[in-house]
């Protein structure tokens, strides 16, 4: 699905990623954990195509294409989805208008016909139930006046609507109470197939109680320094990141 090789990236001349390697296959769930400042959100931003980062070395293959050659919207249309850590408000634009525009842009890109209003509304009903999102929120302006939990659920709702190949969840668990966390996790689990993949970026282990990852990676100082199964998350929770830092020094 995605292969990242020796990725180096910097912002305003300051190196953040320093030789990151990661391979994610279809059907897999990967968790990327790490202390603050390790480069977790930088990785998410670079995959989505934020322009303020400079890629100084490395390559990213996304389903046979050079990801770094694609524009932000091309990546999205090819099936890369980012659930934002801080979802953006767009006053006056309804969630449904926003999503219908997005869906039809993606369909047009694939050479498919625009989705009919009827089909679209059925999809909205179906997918909003998945994340227990009040159907009223679907017709409200994008994220405007949403609570923190509603914004995060809205991200997963959008993900469900757009049905991406690769979803990257950037700190989706931050600011969620246990109930919201369960709902979000439940949504992600239900969307999982053997055709798609998920990268969960998180600081804490608790989301991984609900979404069981196939792999857990520790990102530290711009590189993945440790990879193991789901038990690694528990170990990190217990020992903290200092343990990794010490290990790395040793």
């Amino acid at each position: 699905m995605i292969t990242i090789k020796n990725l180096h990236a910097s912002i305003e001349g300051k190196p953040i990623l320093k030789g990151l390697n990661l391979t994610v296959n279809a059907g897999e769930v990967h968790a990327i954990m790490g202390p603050n400042g390790a480069g977790k959100s930088t990785l998410a931003s670079i995959l989505a195509g934020r322009e303020e980062y400079e890629i100084t070395a490395g390559e990213i293959d996304f389903d046979g294409e050079d990801l770094l050659d694609l524009s932000v919207e091309e990546r999205a249309r090819e099936g890369l989805f980012l659930a934002f850590q801080y979802p953006v408000e767009i006053p006056g634009v309804s969630n449904v208008n926003f999503l219908r525009t997005a869906i039809n842009e993606i369909r047009e890109h694939k050479g498919e016909k625009a989705m009919s209003a009827k089909e679209f509304m059925a999809l909205v009903r179906d997918k909003s139930a998945l994340v227990e999102l009040d159907s009223k929120l679907a017709s409200r302006s994008v994220n405007e006046g949403f609570s923190g939990g509603e914004k995060k659920r809205n991200e997963i709702f959008q993900m469900a609507m757009l049905n991406p190949k690769l979803a990257i969840l950037d700190e989706t668990d931050s600011g969620l109470d246990i109930d919201a966390l369960r709902i979000v996790a439940n949504g992600v689990n239900q969307l999982k197939t053997d055709q798609n993949a998920t990268i969960i970026i998180t600081h804490y282990q608790r989301l991984l109680d609900y979404i069981i990852p196939d792999f857990v990676h520790v990102l530290y100082d711009g590189r993945i320094v440790k990879t193991a199964g789901k038990e690694l998350a528990l170990e990190l929770e217990e020992k903290g990141y200092d343990w990794i830092k010490e290990n790395k020094v040793n």
């Binding site: 919207e73 249309r77 767009i90 926003f98 997005a102 757009l162």
Partner: peptide, 13 residues
């Protein structure tokens, strides 16, 4: 940020 958000969902500028 709004533009980026839209584009990340596949919407052209």
């Amino acid at each position: 940020d709004q533009l980026f958000y839209c584009k990340q969902r596949g919407i052209s500028e």
